[in-house]
C-alpha cells in the first residue's frame, strides 16, 4: 500500500510543481490574468459550475455523444476485426479498405457527415465512431491473429464448430488486445467529440469553450478543457480497473 502511495506521489509531483509555478506566476503579476488565469481560479470556477444544472446538461450531452459513438465503434470494430481474422476472404476485403481509410483525417469528413446527418447529435456520434473504430479494429485483428492455432484446434477437437470458435475462442483470447485498443479509442473519442462540438454545435463542452472565447471570458475557456481532460483521465482509469478485473486469470501482462 505504501509503495502505491509513493508511486502516486512521484507521478504527481511534476504536475503539482507545474501548477504551483503557474499559480505563482499569475499571482506575482508576471502574466496577465485575462490571458492566463490561475489554476485556483479555474478550479474554483469548475467547482462552481458543477453545481449548476446547465453546465451538467452540457457535460451530459458530450458524454452521451461520446458513449454512443464509442459503443458503435466497439461493436463495428470488434465484429470486423474478428471477421477479418477468422475468414480469409473477409480479411482480404477488410484489410485494404482499412489501409485506404486509416490515414485519412476523419475530422475532414465532418462537413460531409453534417450534410448527411444534420447539425446535431447524429453527425457528432458518427464522427466519434469513425475515429474510434480504427484502433479497436486494429487491436481486435492483431489480437485475434496472434491466437495460438492449437487453442483453436483443441476446441475443434472437443466438438466446437468453426463459427462457434470465433466467439468461444478468438474473442476471449483477443480480449486483452481489444481492451488496449478500447483505451486508445476512448481517448480519441474524448478528443473528437470535443473538437466536433467546437467546430459546430449548440451545446456540449466544446461549444462552451467557443462561447466563452467569443465573450472573452478566459476562465470559462479553461474550464471545459480541464473538464474533458479530467473526464478522459477518469474514464481511462475506470477502463484500466475494469480491464484488471476482466483479465484476472489471464497469463498476459498487457
Amino acid at each position: 500500500m505504501r509503495a502505491a502511495l509513493k508511486l502516486a506521489l512521484v507521478h504527481a509531483y511534476p504536475v503539482a510543481l507545474l501548477l504551483a509555478v503557474w499559480e505563482a506566476c499569475v499571482d506575482a503579476g508576471l502574466v496577465r490574468k485575462i490571458l492566463l488565469p490561475a489554476p485556483s481560479a479555474v478550479f474554483a470556477r469548475l467547482a462552481e459550475l458543477l453545481q449548476t444544472a446547465t453546465f451538467l446538461e452540457h457535460v451530459a450531452q458530450t458524454l452521451e455523444r461520446l458513449f454512443a459513438g464509442l459503443a458503435i465503434a466497439t461493436a463495428l470494430g470488434v465484429a470486423l476485426g474478428l471477421a477479418a481474422a477468422a475468414s480469409r476472404p473477409a480479411g482480404r476485403m477488410i484489410q485494404p479498405l482499412v489501409r485506404v481509410l486509416a490515414p485519412i483525417p476523419k475530422i475532414a469528413l465532418y462537413p460531409a457527415l453534417i450534410l448527411i446527418l444534420g447539425f446535431d447529435h447524429a453527425s457528432k456520434i458518427a464522427l466519434v465512431a469513425a475515429d474510434a473504430v480504427f484502433p479497436i479494429l486494429f487491436a481486435t485483428l492483431h489480437g485475434a491473429r496472434m491466437v495460438e492455432p492449437k487453442l483453436l484446434w483443441s476446441a475443434r477437437a472437443a466438438g466446437t464448430s468453426p463459427r462457434a470458435c470465433v466467439f468461444k475462442i478468438l474473442l476471449p483470447a483477443a480480449l486483452p488486445s481489444i481492451l488496449t485498443g478500447f483505451r486508445i479509442a476512448l481517448v480519441i473519442s474524448c478528443v473528437v467529440v470535443f473538437l466536433a462540438e467546437m467546430v459546430s454545435s449548440t451545446d456540449g463542452l466544446g461549444h462552451l469553450l467557443i462561447r466563452a472565447a467569443r465573450a472573452f471570458r478566459t476562465v470559462d475557456m479553461f474550464v471545459p478543457l480541464v473538464t474533458i481532460s479530467l473526464l478522459g483521465l477518469a474514464l481511462n482509469a475506470l477502463v484500466a480497473a475494469g480491464r484488471r478485473r476482466l483479465l484476472a486469470g489471464y497469463g498476459e501482462s498487457r
Partner: peptide, 13 residues
C-alpha cells in the same frame, strides 16, 4: 481424436 500438444494449449481465460 483428442489432441494433446507440447505447448499445452490451455485456454488461459
Amino acid at each position: 481424436r483428442g489432441p494433446v500438444f507440447q505447448e499445452f494449449a490451455l485456454f488461459p481465460w
